[in-house]
Design a protein around this nucleic acid. Structure first.
Lengths: 115, 115
DNA sequence: TTTTAATATTGCAATATTACGATAAACTTT
DNA sequence: AAAGTTTATCGTAATATTGCAATATTAAAA
């Protein structure tokens, strides 16, 4: 197939998967890190920064934007991109809710009875 | 192509992308949430829990394991899976380092001069 | 030892992703 | 207006992912 059955999962699960999937590529990780370091920049700066062709960068930027991770602002000829901090906040909050069992690894780490 | 040029990026960027990509699917998000809620369980429990066929679940579990997000322990006939908290910690730490510009959106949100 | 149970692997069809050259679109400068 | 600049889109080839039926594997149970 190759098609993800999104209808089988909750809206929250699908949204988190979409956001994380968008970050699931080293080029997009690098773009976000760069945007974080410079606050904001135009597309051309990223093209100069990363060793990928301009259409490839443009495509990655579109995916990041579709997932809500970045925002793009048209300024005349150029487009100024920056991180959408709402998405970063969502990721932080999501992973904050995972339990941390400090007994993990002590006894039989995979013992269901360990609460 | 369809092939990711991992050689162009740092080991850290590739590792983070690998981890996040593994979570970039609603089924794998659901699996992690379930594992978090029950601490640990055998594969069959996940198969019963999720509306996907057993081979599909097995495949998703392998991807989560390859990315370091879960651990699997063979116990006789069954395999007991649980979250590897090291990976969760890595994700938390990674996103904690992103700057949060509280001036975002105030003036021109995409003004590079906003520090 | 045969049967049953749990999980992994294989094989495959459908679809998605990645990367980029070529080109288009839109704005700026000359 | 013409030429240059910046970014997006199109088209395409190579590869990856998703999902599952069928089957293999391994251990437990009968």
């Amino acid at each position: 197939m190759g098609i993800t059955k999104t209808d089988l999962f909750s809206a929250e699960q699908n949204e988190m998967a979409r956001i994380l999937k968008a970050m699931g590529h080293p080029a997009r990780v690098a773009i976000l890190e760069y945007l974080d370091s410079v606050n904001a920049c135009i597309c051309g700066d990223i093209v100069s920064e990363l060793p990928l062709a301009q259409p490839t960068i443009s495509q990655h930027l579109r995916e990041l934007k579709n997932a809500g991770l970045i925002k793009g602002n048209v300024e005349g000829n150029t487009i100024c991109y920056c991180i959408d901090e709402t998405a970063i906040g969502k990721i932080r909050e999501y992973f904050a809710h995972f339990k941390v069992c400090d007994k993990q690894g002590e006894i039989n780490w995979c013992n269901v009875k360990v609460k």
